[in-house]
Amino acid sequence: MNRHLISAADLSLADAISILDTAEELARLAERPIPKLPTLRGRTVVNLFYEDSTRTRISFEAAAKRLSADVINFSAKGSSVAKGESLKDTALTLQAMGADAVVIRHNASGAPHRLAEWVRGSVVNAGDGTHEHPTQALLDAFTMRRRLGRLSGLRVTIVGDILHSRVARSNVWLLHTLGAQVTLVAPPTLLPVAIGTWPCAVSYDFSSVLPASDVVMMLRVQHERMAQAYFPSVREYSRRYGLDGDRMALLPPHAIVMHPGPMNRGVEITADVADSARSTIVEQVANGVAVRMAVLYLLLGGGPGGPGMAGGPAGQAAMPEPAGVAL
C-alpha cells in the first residue's frame, strides 16, 4: 500500500487483493458480539467533507471508530472554497492537529492530490469531483467477489453518466486491474471523447450487452444534464439506458444488479429492479464499512518504514524531466 489512497488507478493487483482480503476478515469480525477493535487507538482520522454526503461520511466514521481511531468531522461545506479558508490553510490546520489520516470529499477533481502535498498524514479520497471514488470501487469489487466468487474474467457492465462519474472511473481502473472485463453503456454525449484509451469496451445498446453480463452497475443520472443537452428527456433516457424488469430478464440467472446510490428510482432503475433479489444495493452499504476499515488499517495500521503502495500521488512530476516536457 501507498501512503495515500487517492486513485484506484494507483492500486496494483497485490494492493487491491490485499484490501479485499483484509476487508473479508474485518467483515467477519463485524459479526462478533464486540465489533470494536483496538487497532488504531491513539490515531486521529479527520473526515474533511466539502460536499454533503452523509452516507459516505458515516461509513468512514463507522470504519474508523470500529478500529478505535479518534474521529474528527470537519464539514467544510458551504465554506465555498472561493470565499472560505483555502484548502491549503485547512490542510495546515489539520496538520497542526496531528491528523494521521484525512478522508476528503471534494467537488474539485484532484483536491486529494493537492491535500497530499500539504499534510503529512495519509490522504484517503472519498470522492473528488468527476475524478475518482476509489473506496466505492473497492466495495463494489468486494460485493461482486462475495456474490459471484471471483473477479477475474467477470463481465461487468456500467451504465449511465460515465463522463461525470467518479464511481465509473474508479471502477474501470480497479476492475481492469482485477482482471474483469468492463463494458460501458451510455449515450455518446455522456462518454469522454477519449474513451477509446480506457481499458474497457463501449456500447450504446444496453439490451444487447445484458445477456453477456455478470454484473450490471447502474449510475445515478442527474436531471441537470438534460438542460445541458446531454440527452433530450428523462423519459427517453430511461427508455434507452434505464434498467427495468424487462431488461433485467435479459440477464443470465446468476447476474447481479448494483447501484452506488443514491438512486433515482424510475430514472436509471425501476423500483422492482432495485428491490429484487439480484440487487446488492443494501449489501453494498454494509460492505462499505468493512472495505473502509481495511483501507484505514492498511494505511494507518503500520508504522514508518511503511508499506509502499508505490510512492506519492500519481503523476507527481519526477525531476528533472516530468512526463509532458517535450524535450
Partner: peptide
C-alpha cells in the same frame, strides 16, 4: 506550448 504537454496535469498542480 512549444515545450509542454497536458501530461503535466497528472498531479493536478
Amino acid at each position: 506550448h512549444l515545450l509542454l504537454t497536458d501530461q503535466l496535469a497528472a498531479g493536478y498542480d
